[in-house]
Design a protein around this nucleic acid. Sequence first.
DNA 1: AGTCAAGGTTACAAATATGAAACTTGATTT
DNA 2: AAATCAAGTTTCATATTTGTAACCTTGACT
Lengths: 220, 220
Amino acid sequence: MKKIMIIEDEKALRDELSVLLKNAGYEPIAVTNYDNVSEQMKNVNADLILLDINLPNVNGETLLQDFRKQSGTPVIMLTSRITEIDEVLSMSYGADDYITKPYNPTILLLRISAVLKRSEKVGTMQKYNDVEFSTVKGSLIRNGSEQILTKNEMIIFQLLLDRRGEIVTRDDLMTALWDNDEFVNDNALSVNISRLRGKLAELRLPKAIETRKKQGYVLK
Amino acid sequence: MKKIMIIEDEKALRDELSVLLKNAGYEPIAVTNYDNVSEQMKNVNADLILLDINLPNVNGETLLQDFRKQSGTPVIMLTSRITEIDEVLSMSYGADDYITKPYNPTILLLRISAVLKRSEKVGTMQKYNDVEFSTVKGSLIRNGSEQILTKNEMIIFQLLLDRRGEIVTRDDLMTALWDNDEFVNDNALSVNISRLRGKLAELRLPKAIETRKKQGYVLK
DNA sequence: AGTCAAGGTTACAAATATGAAACTTGATTT
DNA sequence: AAATCAAGTTTCATATTTGTAACCTTGACT
């Protein structure tokens, strides 16, 4: 269940948001004490933060910018006027989205789900079912066991993951792997696919990459 | 100048959008023939596409899903009713955002700039000033020249980039690079920093990583 | 100037990644 | 059934990556 932190001083709105989010299947966490908002933002470890831009005695800009130095958790700004949005963007607070009050509940929920969906694949950690794919560490992790991928294997897995469930042609993979000018044996791709499959098999996913003869490969 | 493709059958709206975008500093490209929209979307190579969900004789869902197989270019859906938005998302067309008609010009421009900004850092491509950092390809690119980074160099650069401008301790870097249990010579970090610096110097950024003695390193 | 600490650099050996080649498998065509 | 084709696998030589060890540089403090 995704935790969503609500930082909004107007009680009526705060409660309304809490109910709306709870009904939508989220776990709302409403902040009521603004003395140490900054600390709470860092400690709660929420999946998303709804932050009112106008809080009593708190500078929203400084707050978010400060928070951004420590965390990439997505933040949706709650703003009162359209003109305020201009400020948000021009000051490049680091907000991921913004919503103007009074907001339509449907729109709010849609924006939340859009931002959450986006944040899942941002950064260097991606997910393939219960497998973590870290392009920086260059590894796949499942149930604590880790398989180190080589550069080629990463390029292949990334492309297959980007188009998960779809057929990716051998040509597309070749293009992603090698520059057009450098000639490589067409079989080199088979070799690299084979090696990647071997590592997936070690993670008990021997059938993750399916061959579609004459068409390409599919990451199931 | 960013190219924005407009796919909207209502002429008045189309023209209005063109003018608005041109005034905002974009290069609008309006489509008027819908027989081969799909081809045009692929060929124009736009930075962003505004796509009306209801086109005559064209199924917006199929169109976008088909396009998504070939391109990651951001698409903003233009929808008439709020109920339509539900469809857009629930069918997971692959749209990056949506706007309901009639739309407020300010909001439209803000959404466009937000999506464009987002698309720049989406996926595995990150930016350090004018340097592209691709963790999948494992390289830094600047002015067309590319430096391939090794796994260790990527881990170091990623951590420094995440905390850009801040001091990152040698300990933090060591933790990111090696498991606690495996013993590595403390000097190995110096060696790896040195190698990374060498590659940055090749990109004419010899001073990118600054040493703070007794404290750590800073990516300027 | 001399010493020391904190990093930087270079050279090298061991480990790892990679493409090519040869061979295997399994499906489709003739 | 034989031939053909697409793709998988194994083995090998070459290239790259990596940690260590030895040595170098810089700047602070005597």
